[in-house]
Design a protein around this nucleic acid. Structure first.
Lengths: 221, 221
DNA sequence: CCTCACCTGACAGCAGCCTGAACCGCTTAC
DNA sequence: GTAAGCGGTTCAGGCTGCTGTCAGGTGAGG
C-alpha cells in the first residue's frame, strides 16, 4: 500500500515513517501542505496520514480541497488536540479516522492495517451488538443487513458506548464527547440525540438508566 | 487482556496459547465446555476463543447460554468447518468473529489485537458477595447470573453497604446517603428501601440488627 | 400475651425522560 | 443570488415509573 504522511515534526515523522514501512507499506513523507498537494497530484495514494497544524496552513483546508476534487482516498488525521470540536470537524471535513497525539505506534499500525484490509477487499472485523453490525474502522453500521447512516455527532455519541460492552455513560460523560471539556449545556440535547440514535438503531438499542445515564443494550432487541 | 481458550486439540491449543501469551495476554486454556463454564463464572475475560466441536458438547450451546446470562464478552469462534451456514449460525448465536482452521497464527494475533483495541478500556473489577456480582463502575448487579435492576435511590443505599461489607450501618447513616446532610426524615423510608432491596437481591442479603441498624450479609444467602 | 420495632403492599404526586416540531446556520445546487 | 436541503439545537407537551408516605401486618423479646 502507498501511504502519504503529512507531518512537520521531524521526530514524530521519522517514527511514523519507520513504523509504516516496517509494516510493509511504501511511505512518502512531506512536511507541508504545499508538498502534499503536489504529491497527490502526481501519485495515487491508498491512505493519507494528515497532521493538522502545519507551517503553511491547516490540514482541514487541504482535506476539504482534496474532497472537493472528488478524491476519496482514506484520510486519518493526526492531531495533538484532544478537542472534540476538532474531531467532529475532522469527520465533517471528510476524514475517515483520527489519532490523538501522543498515540501508540501499534495503534497507528492497527488503523493503517484496517485501511489496508479494506483496500484489499477484506472487510474489517465487525462488532455485533444485537441486530447491529458495527465496522469501527470504517465508521459504518448496518442493522439487519441494512446500512444505517449516522451524522458526525451521532457517531461521536455512539462510539462512546462501544468502548466496553455494557458501559454506563452518564449524561456529563456524553456531553464531554460532544462538546469542549467542561462545556455546560442546559438543554436536553443529549436526550434528543439518544432519541435519534434509537430511531436509527432500534428502540431498545440504548437503555435508559434513570437518574444515572444510558447504556448500550448488548442483548437482542 | 485476559483470554479464555476453549480448545480440545492438544497441539493446536498449545500453539494458540503460546502465540497469545507471546502477544502479551494472559491465557486460560480449558479443553471442555464444562471447564469453560466454571471459568467464566469465576473470572471475567476480555475475550473467549471458542472451538465448536468439543468432547462434551457443541460450542454454540455454550455461547448461547453465555449470552442468555447477559454476558457480552467478545467471542471468536475457531472451527474446522468452512460452511457458510455454520458461519451465519455462529454470528447469530452471538459470536463476534470467526476463524476457519487451519488459520495462520499471525492472523489470529491480528484478530485478538483488534479485540484488544476495541476494548482497551479495562473492565471494572467485580465484587462478589454471596450470589451477587457487582460492577461498581457500571452500576450493574447480577444475581446468579441474572441481571438485577436497581433504581438510583436503591443503588445509593446499596453502595453504602458495599464500601464496608459486613459493617453495621445505622438508620441515620443510611439517611445521610440518600438525602442532603442533616435532612431529617420522620417516615420509614429507609425501611421501605431495605424491603425493596431485599426483594431484588434476596431476602437474606441484608440483615436487620434490631435497634441498631442493618448490615450486608457477606456469606451465602 | 403484650409491646414495640420492623416489614411491606398500595398509591398519589412529580421528577426525569421522550419526542415531534420549529428554528437557525451552513452548505450545495442551480 | 437564491432556494433547497441538512445537521444541530432548543422548546413544549406528554408520559412513565420512581419516590416518599401511610396503614395494616408480622414477629422478636420480655
Amino acid at each position: 500500500m502507498r501511504v502519504l504522511l503529512v507531518e512537520d515534526t521531524t521526530g514524530l515523522g521519522e517514527a511514523v515513517r519507520d513504523q509504516i514501512s516496517e509494516d510493509g507499506h511504501a511511505v512518502d513523507w512531506v512536511q507541508s501542505l504545499g508538498f502534499a498537494e503536489t504529491s497527490v497530484k502526481t501519485t495515487t495514494y491508498n491512505l493519507i496520514l494528515l497532521d493538522l497544524m502545519l507551517p503553511d496552513g491547516h490540514g482541514f483546508d487541504f482535506l476539504k480541497k482534496l474532497r472537493a476534487t472528488g478524491d476519496a482516498t482514506p484520510v486519518i488525521i493526526l492531531t495533538a488536540r484532544d478537542q472534540v470540536s476538532d474531531r467532529i470537524a475532522g469527520l465533517n471535513a471528510g476524514a475517515d479516522d483520527y489519532l490523538v497525539k501522543p498515540f501508540d505506534l501499534s495503534e497507528l499500525s492497527a488503523r493503517v492495517a484496517a485501511v489496508a484490509r479494506r483496500y484489499r477487499g477484506n472487510p474489517n472485523p465487525l462488532v455485533r451488538i444485537g441486530d447491529l453490525e458495527v465496522d469501527l474502522g470504517d465508521h459504518r453500521i448496518s442493522r439487519n443487513g441494512q446500512p444505517v447512516e449516522l451524522t458526525a455527532r451521532e457517531w461521536a455519541l455512539f462510539e462512546g458506548f462501544l468502548q466496553r460492552p455494557g458501559i454506563l455513560l452518564s449524561r456529563s460523560q456524553l456531553e464531554d464527547r460532544l462538546y469542549e471539556f467542561g462545556a455546560e449545556i442546559e438543554s436536553n440535547t443529549i436526550e434528543v440525540y439518544i432519541s435519534r440514535l434509537r430511531k436509527k438503531l432500534g428502540r431498545d438499542a440504548i437503555v435508559t438508566v434513570r437518574g444515572m445515564g444510558y447504556r448500550l443494550n448488548s442483548y437482542d432487541h
